[in-house]
Amino acid sequence: MINIQSLKFSYKAGRPLFENLHLQLLPGHIYGLLGKNGAGKSTLLKQITGLLFPDAGKVEVFGEVAAQRNPSFLQDIFLVPEELYLPKVKINQYLATRACFYPKFDHQAFESYLREFEIPLNQYLPEMSYGQKKKFVISFALAANTRVVVMDEPTNGLDIPSKSTFRKLIAGSLTEEKCIIISTHQVRDLDNLIDSIVIIDNHRIIFREAVETVTDKLSFKVVPQLNPAETVLYADSNLRGHAIVTPNKHQEHSKIDMELLFNAVLSNRQSIQEIFN
């Protein structure tokens, strides 16, 4: 569905952000795009949505060149940006003038999403708080039924109940032909939601695995004390003891801790790569 081949891109000459980047994302998955500040997550999302053009290589989404920004491409992709723009109109007016651009827009679903987020249908958009605006745009993005939904820090500004509603709606809206990409720093918000993890560091994709594969090969647990005999890929001490990532040698079942995984991948990249290769 999303095919990035040999992508080369730089904001300034001589300082490449991406060099020979390859990435394939498939339909039917929710991808979590993780990375440190300045790693290139937002730039990658902009490349996918056609807001930035590659210096070399190609970015294709369902066979269309993203940079051409053709209507047939734009009506099947939706970006929920971190900073939102909403015109000074009411929700129903926004709906009347924007939904028509998306052929598969589901009005009933949109209303139900708004209900879930507790946003009244006759609300005036500029009077909404940042969190409400975010919930409104997320609802619109999901109701648009585009094949690709890209979200940049979607949980920023959402209150705690809304975060769980967000997870519920995203999980419920995924279909076989849909691909959802979520970029965030708040990895705990994506717990039990994403099924594939993509980690960017130093402008390269350094990790791309399904959650299932990760839990097959790695074990996440909290131990009261570190055992020197055990291979620990990453350890994080907290009040409950030590949260650790170890190779899953005994096929133990554990729940993925994405923050631990992210830190493990960044701090112990070679060992992790050896386990997954």
Partner: peptide, 16 residues
């Protein structure tokens, strides 16, 4: 003029 509005302008499914 503003990045958010630019995104809205370019991502609206109408041709250039």
């Amino acid at each position: 003029a503003k990045t958010e509005r630019r995104m809205d302008f370019f991502l609206l499914p109408a041709s250039k």
